[in-house]
Nucleic acid binder design. Structure first.
Lengths: 221, 221
DNA sequence: GTTTTTCTGACAATTCACTGACAATACGCT
DNA sequence: AGCGTATTGTCAGTGAATTGTCAGAAAAAC
């Protein structure tokens, strides 16, 4: 999962970034509003953390622009304490959730996880596909109750596929959401990653739709 | 479905091309305006993506020429941000939709799909013919709710026939829209493809009009 | 019944995905 | 900081699914 963080305060930005990376996200941190808007408009993110009160371009303006462009990526806005107006206006402008500074970073991570889940149609923090369970809070994957140790990259793969369960995901999309910068196209790293993950989860966990992509789906399909 | 992309920027062009190919399109990428105009006039495309601001020949000029020639292929124009004039003029010149840079490639693909659907008279993203349903977003075909796995080429065939439902499509037309470069005429690959697809969809899904071509049609006709 | 058109099964070529071995890199530990 | 281990990317070779070709069979038209 890729998260875009737009925050001008150096320290706060870095702390959000590390907190989310520990939670398994890939992050892009941007201080400038204009540049941030551009990133959100041109690259696919799974969630965006947006500070209101940016220098060059105001957060609410960015948000409104995105929404006008049919961008439906979930957005969490950060507001200063007491600014009720901002908060209300943020929701009106299309924010999906808001968080008041100061906050504990666990709180932020929890909110972000929840946003990502809800945006992919999952209410509960545990996502089940077939006999595989993804525990988004503990970042663990288990099969029939047996925990399966995965490497960080493998976890990201499974997490992305399970959030988007019953949907074929092509290699391009996986590359975009599993690697920070865009990536040499001529390598087969995704195939290798899928192969390794499959060996741990079981042959039929991740299915190949030749010519289309990969899918994790419930049995009855 | 065949898409013509006229875009001088090497990288942008390539990214549009791969995005559309992953979405099941065959693409032709052309950097030169003059050459692009010629291609659009001489070969049958299902949709054209046209960048305004080309070096040799301006996009709007190309578009106007096509329309004067009674070419009705749907055209999506790409404009730089803020150029309202261009956009308005584009619509006036016969563009069917426009997209402002920067954009996410999912958005582009969605617009292109929508254009192709509308140009063949389909409002919804799911097209139903008889008991067969084509899900254009997920690129899946199902019958009575049961998904039917198809190979990429088979999918292209069904997609084309279902977009053009209740209309007889001859082999020449199918060849032109299902293969990138012009193809040896003496092979019977279309017949074989139809046969294989029929085996998966059911005997009566694709009907043969001997001497004319193939058709997928609703039962009551 | 003959001719034309389309269908079908078998084979071949190609493309695409998987695998195992190796190399590079990142990471944790003392 | 330096070493050892785990993780990840690369590459070449293997295997399998897809697609095209061809020849003969079936079906339709006359």
């Amino acid at each position: 999962m890729r998260a875009l963080i737009i925050e001008d305060d150096e320290k706060i930005g870095a702390s959000i970034s590390t907190a989310l990376e520990l939670a398994g996200f890939l992050t892009v941190l941007e201080k400038d509003g204009e540049e941030g808007w551009f990133l959100g408009s041109s690259e696919p993110f799974d969630v965006i953390i947006l500070d209101l009160g940016l220098p060059t371009l105001d957060g609410l303006t960015i948000l409104k622009r995105w929404r006008k462009e049919n961008c439906i990526t979930p957005v969490l806005i950060l507001t200063a304490r007491g600014n009720w107006d901002e908060r209300v206006e943020g929701i009106d402008s299309g924010a999906d959730d808001y968080l008041v500074k100061p906050y504990r970073s666990e709180e932020l991570v929890a909110r972000v996880r929840s946003l990502v889940r809800r945006s992919t149609g999952h209410a509960a923090p545990n996502i089940e596909v077939g006999d595989i369970v993804l525990d988004t809070r503990q970042m663990r994957v288990s099969r029939d109750g047996q925990p399966i140790p995965l490497t960080p990259q493998e976890y990201r793969l499974v997490s992305y596929l399970m959030h988007n369960n019953n949907r074929v995901v092509d290699q391009m999309e996986l590359t975009e959401h599993l690697y920070s910068q865009d990536f040499e196209r001529d390598s087969n790293s995704i195939e290798v990653l899928v192969g390794r993950t499959r060996r741990k989860l079981g042959k039929n966990s991740i299915k190949t739709r030749r010519g289309f992509g990969y899918i994790m789906e419930d049995e009855n399909e």
